[in-house]
Design a protein around this nucleic acid. Structure first.
Lengths: 196, 196
DNA sequence: AATTGACAATCCAGCCTCGAATTGTCAACC
DNA sequence: GGTTGACAATTCGAGGCTGGATTGTCAATT
């Protein structure tokens, strides 16, 4: 099921994340990453093609993890019987890592730009995947009668899109605590509006 | 009530808007604006201090107009007895001009950046003012019993903030028609969630 | 008073150089 | 296999220079 994790690779990624967060992408040199890892610069090239690949790997890992966490929250009907609570948890799982990287680091906007440049398609694809999850969840909740899309005049994709776009706006929060409060408030009201 | 409108100033502003939209702020010269207005470049300086002031005036006018329109929609309880419909109309009045400038022009992002740089405080203040209007509207609707904030666990400012932030996300629409559809869907569901 | 052409001052994109920092790739080593 | 120091190639920012475009300000004109 799970591949054997490459410890050295992981330690390099962890060191790189630390340095990127501290200095941004451009101002972090391979030397910095090597030193933080405790290894020579040359050996980094045994594990990654170059700095961009380290960054892309890190970004992909973050995306993947947040998507998996979000999906898990959406699917966990056993311990969270409420759609509203599942959507809330999924949005937080998806948004929190982003906020921690971008709003936490002094170089958040630079990192954000580099991410668009180096991983633009991945970001887009992840966004689509998340939208797909939400759509599935909305459709399922409509089928089970937990929400009523028809009387709202919406389809499942349209409802998912609204939640997704609204969440994009809510991302503009200064810290995780604020984000949590806002997401909770938003999801409760919005899903209540759908009859949840 | 209304100041006598300075026709020459208005015609300069109109010409400038055309050119800014066509070429962006930096690539539009005073010569361009003068030619479009049909006067000499020198005479522009009889009416405006410089290019930045023309831009700022244009931006302020746009902000002011969208705010006034939004406020009018919110206050028009006579012809629009529904809070939901008023909020929907107000959001559209506020967002549409923005979308027309930014999403329409090929230089939208440059204009957006210059606007932040030259009119940052104004943009912020306008945003606050709009948030204030929404807060007032929410509070009034709660007072009249048209919505129920308490059972949603929200205050009027919190509810207004959620609507405002969500609208920020909805702004990411490719055209006005899409924006309208989304705002309508969002507002109906959200206000329904508040018991409207 | 508003408008204008003309003038001097300023800005700015392009281009060059320079040198230090950084990169990617070895052969040698463990 | 992975690791390393060392090497050559490349990148990158600072700085300076140039010419053309653009700006802001006149005194003269209507």
């Amino acid at each position: 099921m799970s591949d054997p994790p490459d410890l050295k690779r992981e330690s390099i990624l962890s060191a790189a994340q630390t340095q990127f967060s501290r200095y941004g992408f451009r101002r972090t040199s391979m030397e910095d990453i090597a030193k933080e890892t405790g290894v020579s610069r040359a050996s980094l090239y045994s594990h990654f093609e170059n700095k961009e690949e380290i960054f892309r790997t890190l970004s992909a890992q973050l995306q993947e993890r947040s998507l998996e966490a979000a999906e898990a929250r959406l699917k966990d009907e056993a311990s969270t019987p409420d759609v509203s609570a599942r959507v809330e948890a999924a949005l937080l799982a998806r948004l929190t890592p982003f906020l921690e990287v971008v709003a936490q680091s002094a170089h958040g906007s630079e990192i954000y730009d580099e991410n668009s440049r180096l991983c633009g398609e991945l970001v887009l694809a992840s966004s689509e995947r998340f939208l797909g999850m939400l759509t599935t969840a909305m459709a399922a909740a409509a089928r089970s009668g937990e929400i009523d899309l028809k009387s709202a005049g919406l389809t499942a994709p349209a409802a998912a899109e609204l939640i997704h776009l609204a969440a994009t706006g809510l991302k503009q929060s200064a810290d995780v605590a604020t984000l949590e409060k806002r997401v909770r408030g938003f999801v409760r009201v919005f899903l209540a509006g759908l009859g949840a």
